[in-house]
Amino acid sequence: MEQERKMKAGIECINAGKVFVTPEGEHEVVRNLSFATKENEFLVLFGPGQCGKTTIINMIAGFEDVTSGRILADGKKVEKPEPSRGVVFQNIALFPWMTTMGNVEYGLKIRGVKKEQRRAEAQKYIDLVGLSGFENSFPVQLSGGMKQRVGIARAYCNEPEVMLMDEPFGALDAQTRYLMQEELQRIWSAEKRTVIFVTNNIEEALYLADRIIVLTNCPATIKKEYVIDLPRPRNLVSEEFLALRREITGILDSSQED
């Protein structure tokens, strides 16, 4: 029983840190980061600026090594990217020579899943993200929001245990971004996964999160943690929502001063 629960441990960071060595000297971007995900939790890493957050996602995904501490996925040390940890990228990173269908079914295809089976599976996720009818479109024919829907479907279709989302809506305009937040909330409610979501937008964080970890800027360390138990879908102008928003923005302002 204890073993069983350990297997469902998800992602665990233990004093994880990252120092880049550049010709100009050492550059510390992540320091002493410790947290663990709970099953099917929507965890948001919220922090200002450009520094550190993407590196955290890259380390959890296995694209980059930690330089101190450890990161565990299902109790095992993260060494390389694996299908069990799906990533949705900030710059979307679709395969531009593949259609929507080709992108979404890619993971299943290289694993040797038979055509009818992977088509059916991919279609399910294309429908889920609302792209029915665009199966044969190439990414260049899609708008920014639609491209990221393909990105989400592609990651989902591989059936990862954890989804890592690195500012997935950062490149979208405000209106599309808001729409995509609603969409992601809907998709996640339909297909529950453990999600680690990085953003520098407080409204986005509060709208989506079960729990918010507030990070400081450069090096990224944990400033404070909030459990958000407002009912979903969230009302962006409710008393509680605005109070939390004020409070979290407030602690960031004070952290920037010192």
């Binding site: 296995g62 694209f63 694996e82 299908p83 990533v87 990228f89 990173a93 890619y106």
Partner: peptide
């Protein structure tokens, strides 16, 4: 594009793929 290669890795592709 390096992130496109990362995307393929994350989906389970080996070096040959």
């Amino acid at each position: 594009d390096k992130t496109v290669i990362n995307a393929a890795k994350m989906l389970g592709a080996n070096e040959f793929q």
